[in-house]
Amino acid sequence: MTLFIHRKNYLLTKLLFIALIFSANSFAAAPYCALRDPSHQIYAMFPSATSYRSVVRKVDALARQSLNEKLPFTLHHNELGEHTIYVPVQKVMPLGIVHVRSEMGVWGLMEIVWALDRQMKVVDFKFQRCRGDSCKTVIEKNIKSLLQGKGERELANLLDENKTALKHGLLELNDSELYLAGSIIKSAIKTIAVTKGSWPDTVTELQSVSDSKQ
């Protein structure tokens, strides 16, 4: 009985809180972005970079709707607003994109710094915030090598039927870790999609550089 009351109170509190958040978002623009500047990660993920530039864009409802049509999941309202991507350059030549995104993890929100190449394929990623042992475990079990070089479609193929977790058998992970891996992949797909949708000129620029290189 006590358990039931606890659970009930908890659910009520949670529902109230979520309702407050939604109502706050509906009439107030987000005044603050906590996604921190990933300057250290930029150089770590693109060691040949000599500098980088920031490109700020607003991810709006339109971008959200266009993403809805492409993806099996959508952006949260909290993910809308002004966002910054970073373009590391070697002298003047852009090397790729660094994009930080938040995603629902096992323990709260996690922040992932994504490094994409000029073809919008995953180069690397780093956790800027991730709680729980699973974060370390999935890295240890080589999720990076699974994701590296994969674009949107290849990444989507890694998800299970419900599009919530990594398919079984690809890596030796438990249920909780599979869910975390699924969240990481979803974050990657969103990152690529949002980048393509909200920073099309930057993406075009990078692709042209890439084409000229080839």
């Binding site: 809180f17 987000a30 909290n78 629902m104």
Partner: peptide, 24 residues
């Protein structure tokens, strides 16, 4: 139940810290 409550609490705190909506 504690795990689930803490998860919810962490998520909500993350949202507050992420959005700066301190009235929540």
């Amino acid at each position: 139940l504690l795990q689930e409550s803490v998860k919810a609490w962490l998520l909500n705190n993350d949202l507050i810290y992420g959005s700066g909506q301190t009235f929540l």
